[in-house]
Simulated assay, not measured.
Amino acid sequence: MRVLLLALRRLAASLPTLFVVLAGLFLLLQLAPGDTVDALVAQMGGGDPVMMEELRRYYGLDVSVAVQLGRYIWRLLQLDLGFSAIYGKPVSAVILERLPATLLLMMSALSFAFAGGMALGVLAARKVNRWPDTLISTLGLIFYATPSFWFGLMGIVIFAVNLGWLPAGSFEEIGAGYTGFRRALDIAWHLFLPTLTLALIFLATYLRIMRASMLEVLNLEFVRTARAKGLSPGRVVRRHVLRNALLPMVTLIGLQAGTMLGGSIVVESVFALPGLGRLAYESVVQRDLNTLLGIVFVSALLVIAVNFIVDLLYARLDPRIVT
């Protein structure tokens, strides 16, 4: 119960930050040239000034920035994300259409990066200063230093174009009409390369953090005591070292949730995935302010939810933080 109360307090403290971020982004976007009406007129091939003024009045763009911001915050308090002039439907409907692809990509990439980084970090720490440690550390440095879009493009060239093993992009086979388990397999097959592309940079971070944390915990007194009692090296790692070494890894999940959402913009653009990242890019280009702010709002909620879960996990791993 105390763990839940602690997490709820931190959750409540993050809500004012959410509104400050949205208000700051709203004001920042006002500095960019043009607005939604300009984008609409450009798509239509032109329009007269009278029509443009009517459109601005219809979409509430004829008032001051302060009034627009006040109206937006008031709608947001009512969980109304507004209307997308570019897509011709409520922003919530547009986001719900794109959210599943981003959630699947983010969850699969985060799971792969965490599990792979933990396994490689443990192996590197147990083989410290030997060839497995050197190889893993070198690969981690390469993964961290290489841009994700380059991994994606090379993956498409090698595995999709040259070898033909994997699809080059999209979320699923268009027009195949798969359902049930067959559709799930098709989506997983299409997400393999995007997941690997997004996860490699984060995997490199996790393995380096896990290696350093393992080496630190291995030198603590309670670990030496466990070894002196005659416990096997594997049991010492599983029961005494791993739980304490995981604390920085769990913390890093919450810190990198937002970074991973930002990285999905590049990955979704490279692989033509219909997710929130690609939608954010399209909204910026088309000056669809309501949709962009809605994406930021939903993304912030996702980050808050991830950090809420991280707080619960952290309290489970280290009960001292709730005392």
Rank of each mutant, 00 (worst) to 15 (best):
G155K: 09
A176L: 01
M154W: 14
V157S: 14
F171Q: 04
G164A: 07
G155Q: 05
G177C: 01
N162P: 00
L185T: 12
T179F: 09
G164S: 11
G177A: 00
L163P: 01
F171C: 01
F181V: 12
L163D: 02
S170R: 13
E172D: 02
I174V: 15
A160K: 03
L166C: 04
I158A: 11
G155R: 09
A168F: 09
S170E: 10
F171Y: 13
G180N: 04
G180W: 03
G177D: 00
F159T: 02
G177K: 00
S170V: 06
G164F: 11
I156A: 10
M154F: 14
M154D: 08
A184S: 15
V157I: 15
G155V: 10
R182K: 12
G175W: 03
F159E: 00
R183E: 14
F171P: 00
Y178T: 01
T179Y: 06
I174W: 15
L185C: 07
A160D: 08
I156M: 13
F181P: 00
F159Y: 02
F171V: 11
A160G: 06
I174L: 15
G180A: 03
E173R: 13
P167G: 14
N162V: 06
S170K: 10
G169L: 05
E173Y: 03
L163V: 04
Y178V: 02
P167R: 13
I174E: 14
F171E: 06
M154R: 12
T179H: 09
G177F: 00
R183F: 14
L163N: 04
G155S: 13
G180I: 05
W165A: 02
T179R: 12
T179N: 04
G177S: 00
L185W: 15
F181R: 07
F159A: 01
V157E: 13
E173Q: 13
A176V: 03
E173K: 10
I156Y: 08
L185M: 15
M154Q: 13
Y178K: 07
R182C: 00
E173N: 10
I174F: 15
L166D: 05
E172Y: 07
S170A: 07
G175A: 07
L166F: 15
A168D: 06
W165C: 06
I156R: 06
A160F: 04
L163M: 12
L163K: 04
A168E: 05
T179P: 00
L185H: 08
